[in-house]
């Protein structure tokens, strides 16, 4: 529960940045902006121990054997920040399924936020909300749509992750059937039933296009404090991703992020 996490938080100040460490997560506050990061490799523990881990310059390459053949490589920087995810199919070859840039000589802890003009045509009514009346096809068809307005360029993962105006270029499905107890990220049986529909919808998208990346976003209401909300929303989004993976969605096709009480 979030109370247990809160009790184990440690706070540091470092050159104008506040760094908050808690189990599994680091939260940084700088120039009025707050970012949460978690261990991007944690969900790959499902594959068992890595078959190799090596340092290459400023990068750490961790490789897992995937059940059913092939390999997954996760490349991070020395602080554990995700740089690339690479899939090596059993038949040979290599696909970079996530490229998070970070190769230029710049940046401290802050990702570059991209601000695009708001989208006039996108209103809340266009959000597809999961409920009992929906079929899996409703979601897979929402996910198969392209950006709501044309894009001039493509971006690094963290730009997409931390830029609301970029994310809003792609339509989201809201999981209306999922509820959490206050301060908790546990899921109950009713949640699991609702998630099996989501898993089959993602499965059908991946069946046609296996390298698609889905962002699982956690959001909370305004009550409570900002840091608790960030942590809680990230843990809930991760819990959803874990269940989807138990239901057959490869963990490397998912990216998880909690946004706390900021507006989705």
């Amino acid at each position: 529960r979030i109370e247990d996490v809160r009790a184990r938080r440690q706070r540091f100040e470092e050159a104008g940045t506040t760094i908050i460490r808690e189990p599994g997560r680091v939260i940084t506050q700088e120039r009025g902006q707050t970012f949460l990061r978690h261990d991007e490799n944690a969900r790959f523990a499902r594959f068992g121990a890595p078959i190799s881990q090596e340092r290459r310059g400023g990068e750490i390459w961790t490789t897992w054997a995937r059940p059913g053949g092939g390999q997954l490589v996760s490349v991070t920087d020395l602080d554990g920040r995700l740089l690339r995810r690479i899939r090596r199919p059993a038949g040979g070859g290599e696909h970079v399924i996530v490229d998070n840039g970070w190769r230029r000589p710049r940046h401290g802890v802050r990702p570059v936020i991209v601000i695009l003009p708001p989208i006039e045509m996108l209103n809340p009514g266009e959000l597809t909300i999961l409920n009992d009346g929906h079929e899996a096809e409703t979601f897979s068809s929402t996910w198969s749509l392209g950006p709501v307005v044309p894009l001039d360029q493509v971006y690094e993962l963290d730009q997409v992750r931390f830029s609301p105006s970029l994310r809003s270029r792609m339509r989201a499905v809201e999981l209306g059937g999922i509820s959490f107890d206050t301060g908790s990220w546990a899921l109950d049986q009713a949640d699991l039933n609702a998630l099996s529909l989501v898993a089959s919808a993602i499965q059908s998208v991946l069946g046609a296009s296996p390298n698609e990346i889905f962002l699982v976003e956690g959001h909370t209401g305004r009550g409570g404090n900002e840091i608790d909300n960030l942590s809680l929303s990230d843990r809930r989004a991760e819990a959803i991703a874990e269940v989807l993976t138990q239901m057959g969605i490869p963990p490397e096709n998912l990216v998880v992020q909690g946004y706390g009480d900021t507006v989705p």
Binding site: P147, E156, V173, E174, V198, E212, S233
Partner: peptide, 14 residues
């Protein structure tokens, strides 16, 4: 409100 959203983001990514 507590919400979970899932978005396919591949078209935005390099």
């Amino acid at each position: 409100d507590d919400r979970i959203l899932i978005r396919r983001i591949t078209p935005l990514l390099a």
